[in-house]
Simulated assay, not measured.
Amino acid sequence: MSLETVVEDIRDEARERAKEIRADAEERADDLVAEAEADAEATIEAAEAEAEREVEREREQKLSSAKLEAKQMRLEARRDALESVREQVADRIAAIDGDEREELTRELLDAAADEFESDADVSVYGRADDEALISDILDDYDGYEYAGEYDCLGGVVVESETSRVRVNNTFDSVLEDVWENNLKAISARLFDEEQ
């Protein structure tokens, strides 16, 4: 074997080894590219999924916010409607006149009188427009005197300094009690709801 043959064999071996290294490197490179592509695809899928979740969260938040706003608007409209009805009722109560007004005022005064001693000096207040009516009714009560006006729809406020008692038997206080006790039924009837 000559030196040339040995050199040629070494070169052939080196070429073969280089081919193997190149093939291994290409295979590794292909594996790395495939792995990178898989990672990129997984990252894209995760980003898309996260974006979809975020869109869904935002949609749910906006929907929830819109529902809450609509509910608040409905409640406000109901409050306004109930307030309007209450004002109409107050106007109708204030407009009561004649025998009916006298009868109601007398009943409220009688109920208030039960709270005072028979010999007490009692001051009675009422609506300015009812001064004459109240004064006429008070002619039937000993120790009772019209003491001035009270801002109300009608009825009486009765007090005595000696017994330190004050009774508010105005149409307003009766309306307030009736309104509070029946608000649920009023609302149900007004808005056609089941009770």
Rank of each mutant, 00 (worst) to 15 (best):
T105Q: 00
T43I: 07
N169R: 06
V122A: 03
E107C: 08
D99N: 14
R86G: 03
V89E: 00
L183F: 06
A36D: 06
G148H: 05
L133V: 04
D121I: 10
A66Q: 10
A94R: 12
R101D: 02
M73F: 10
Y144G: 04
L109R: 01
E69S: 15
E54F: 13
R166E: 10
L190S: 07
S123V: 05
Q61T: 06
V33A: 14
V33N: 11
T170R: 01
D114K: 14
A112F: 04
D91Y: 09
I21C: 05
A47R: 09
E8R: 15
R74M: 11
D24G: 07
E149P: 03
E149K: 09
D9K: 12
A66R: 11
E100F: 01
D129S: 11
L104I: 14
Q61A: 13
L68W: 14
E26C: 11
Y150S: 03
A51G: 08
S65R: 14
V165H: 02
R92C: 04
V174R: 09
E45I: 13
E52R: 14
R101S: 04
A25R: 10
A147V: 08
V158F: 00
T105K: 01
R17H: 11
I10C: 10
R57A: 11
Y150K: 05
E194V: 10
L153W: 01
Q72T: 04
R74G: 05
L63I: 06
D142M: 05
L63T: 13
D129P: 02
E145K: 08
N169A: 13
V89Y: 00
D140V: 04
D142S: 14
R59H: 15
T162H: 07
V122K: 04
R53K: 09
A23G: 07
E35P: 01
R92S: 05
G155Q: 02
Q88E: 11
E76H: 09
I93S: 02
D119V: 13
D119R: 13
V124G: 00
Y144T: 01
V158D: 01
F171D: 00
L109C: 02
L109A: 07
Y141N: 03
V157G: 02
I44K: 12
R28G: 15
I21K: 12
D139S: 09
R22P: 08
Y144K: 03
D97W: 05
E149I: 02
D97T: 14
E16A: 10
Y141F: 14
N168C: 02
K67A: 06
V156Q: 01
E60F: 15
R53D: 07
L32K: 11
D140F: 04
V33G: 04
A94W: 03
L32T: 09
S135A: 13
D9E: 07
E83W: 04
I137S: 01
A47C: 05
E87C: 00
D97S: 09
L104P: 00
V124L: 02
S64Y: 10
D9L: 12
R166L: 06
